[in-house]
């Protein structure tokens, strides 16, 4: 009996872990169009990205201001694969990253090792 309980509990836990870390969605933020004709969002980097889902409009230049609020090495580099951007983020400093999304879709961005993840939704 207890073996069955442990097995079922274990399997559900495995399912939960994978769903939560790999497939669930986080907080969403819409980029605002500033006076400088840029869609700007400030992203705080500490053990992850805040916000980690960013919604932007197609065809308008985007500026993501990454503020790295830690020295932990994991977040040292940010990668936006779609735009071939790979940039080091100095700790306690804001690093702006600019690009113009041309195609609609969902794009993943993350740290150099792909452990921290965020999503950019282009509409």
């Amino acid at each position: 009996m207890e073996k069955l309980i442990v097995t079922v509990a274990g399997l559900s836990l495995i399912f939960l872990v994978n769903w939560y870390f790999l497939f669930s969605k986080g907080r969403t933020k819409q980029a605002v169009l500033g006076e400088n004709q840029l869609q700007e969002v400030t992203v705080r980097v500490k053990g992850g990205y805040e916000p980690d889902v960013i919604v932007v409009k197609k065809g308008i230049p985007v500026r993501l201001n990454f503020y790295r609020d830690e020295t932990a090495d994991c977040s040292e580099i940010v990668v936006l694969g779609e735009w071939e951007i790979r940039k080091p983020l100095p700790a306690f400093k804001t690093t702006p990253i600019e690009f113009t999304p041309q195609k609609e879709g969902e794009y993943v961005f993350g740290c150099g090792m792909g452990m921290l993840k965020g999503k950019l939704i282009v509409r």
């Binding site: 870390f21 053990g47 992850g48 921290l116």
Partner: peptide, 13 residues
């Protein structure tokens, strides 16, 4: 602290 920070962002390290 690190684990919680990552967990909140749906990350695991």
């Amino acid at each position: 602290k690190g684990a919680w920070g990552a967990f909140r962002h749906r990350n695991a390290d």
